[in-house]
Write a protein that binds this DNA or RNA. Structure first.
Lengths: 135, 135
DNA sequence: AAATTTGCTTGCGTTTTGCAAGTGCAAATA
DNA sequence: TATTTGCACTTGCAAAACGCAAGCAAATTT
């Protein structure tokens, strides 16, 4: 569960934490849904295996990208949320979306959000960040 | 060597191509050096294994992120370069750098470039893109 | 002609992944 | 109150990916 730093390059250091096929999908879910339970992550389209999910959540928590919180309605549930460090990945997430928008066919629903992003990127980031920071 | 699409989500589709610990480092090298030989990639700090390098270059080429070109001086050498699709990853790369700048300690040399980026992000992207597009 | 460089490929042991099943506790249901 | 269901994981194991060292053919240098 520990991180092996490969070099002092910022890209490399970043990839050491979330450079795999699943971590950014977890972050994505948290950006779209604001908060998710373990079960919510399992429900997403990509069908992550439960053991992989557990290890990625652990890694992201260890590295301060997400935090676990008690669920207000139930002791059996756990809420995962983005920390400020995680929220700060929003610009990265947006640029990936914009890149993909140029080279893949996106679902119509996502295209709508992207249109808003393109209209005023900074405003979108500011607004979304504020939203994610509440509670 | 083929891609397994996990969903139609743009983040997911992107990660299907370059969502691993090495691909973006190859792209990084090409953005900083404009063009690299196979040996150049092997020389970078992270010490990628030669078989992994070969498979990643193959994957990136298959997906149109990079192209192989004949080396003008030697038939034994091969030049790898970014395609437009690869160059378009520059904003993603920059945002990762900016994120890492906030949460890691960067080498002084990289901080200088980042300072320039922060001064005017769009201008930097425009200029760097133009530079990478030459020849 | 021999040695070296270059861009890979091959073998093989180790690590990571993916799938299925299981576990323990909380909460709902009977 | 007893029992079933829901939730958040853990465990076992086969398959795939990774990492290291060695090998290899063509091009270049000596």
């Amino acid at each position: 569960m520990d991180i092996k730093m490969r070099s002092s390059c910022p890209i490399s250091s970043s990839l050491d934490i979330w450079g795999d096929k699943w971590s950014l999908l977890i972050v994505r879910d948290l950006m779209f849904s604001k908060q998710c339970t373990y079960g919510d992550f399992l429900k997403s389209d990509e069908k992550i295996a439960t053991n992989i999910l557990a290890s990625r959540l652990q890694m992201l928590e260890t590295n301060g990208i997400i935090i676990k919180q008690d669920h207000p309605q139930s002791k059996a549930k756990v809420l995962y949320k983005l920390t400020q460090k995680g929220i700060d990945l929003l610009p990265v997430m947006i640029e990936i979306n914009l890149w993909a928008d140029k080279y893949f066919t996106l679902p119509a629903e996502r295209k709508e959000i992207l249109a808003e992003v393109k209209k005023d990127k900074d405003a979108f980031i500011k607004e979304k960040t504020k939203e994610l920071m509440r509670d």
